[in-house]
């Protein structure tokens, strides 16, 4: 896992509420058995026409988008299916943070395991970011805050253990493995067996 402590990037804005994971990666791309190259299927039905040509008015097709690491999205981003292909595809495209006023639970969990930061901000900040595409933002994971162009700092909540893993570039599996003895004891001592 790559370490992320702090980065600066301009934003891509997708001002649509309730973007579901079927839009982020449509089902027909879930047939792959690996995650290589999945960034190509990101928002496939919104990004390309039926012949596979990029639609110029879609924000991710902006010539500068591939260099941008922050996606500002409408409320309740990532709802729907549990497919981890959604954060995989965003990450593969180059996105490292999604900012919204609300982010769906399963998508948030999946993102934190894949070096993609789900950042929830208050609705005023959110609206300002939606209204001002392309502004430069500093994301500071250690300080749990983003910094806007006017130097205003906005803190965001992040689960402490996930933050620890992200800033140190470690995955969460190790922690589970360290607890194997407790798991064995739990299995032996519980009052009923599944």
């Amino acid at each position: 896992m790559e370490k992320i402590t702090q980065f600066t990037s301009t934003t891509i804005v997708l001002a649509i509420d309730d973007v579901d994971t079927d839009q982020i990666v449509p089902a027909r791309f879930l047939t792959a058995t690996t995650r290589e190259g999945i960034g190509k299927s990101l928002f496939a039905d919104w990004r390309y026409d039926s012949k596979g040509n990029e639609l110029s008015d879609f924000p991710l097709n902006d010539p500068n988008a591939s260099k941008r690491k922050i996606l500002v999205a409408g409320r309740n981003f990532g709802c729907g299916s549990s497919r981890e292909h959604a954060p995989w595809a965003l990450h593969d495209f180059g996105i490292r943070a999604v900012i919204s006023s609300e982010i769906a639970d399963i998508f948030r969990n999946n993102s934190l395991k894949n070096g993609l930061l789900p950042i929830v901000v208050d609705s005023d900040t959110h609206q300002w970011l939606l209204d001002n595409p392309g502004v430069e933002i500093i994301v500071d994971v250690e300080a749990k805050m983003i910094q806007l162009p006017d130097s205003k700092k906005i803190t965001f909540p992040i689960e402490p253990f996930a933050r620890h893993c992200i800033i140190n570039g470690i995955d969460q599996t190790g922690f589970l493995q360290q607890n194997i003895d407790s798991i064995t004891a739990f299995e032996t001592n519980r009052s009923w067996q599944p």
Binding site: R83, E84, I106, N109, N110, F161, D171, T173, I183
Partner: peptide
């Protein structure tokens, strides 16, 4: 519902890391 990394966690340890909702 869980993601694929969590499927891996459950297959290997029968456990997940969770905060109580």
């Amino acid at each position: 519902g869980i993601g694929t990394t969590e499927v891996f966690h459950v297959l290997s340890t029968q456990c997940l890391l969770q905060r109580k909702p």
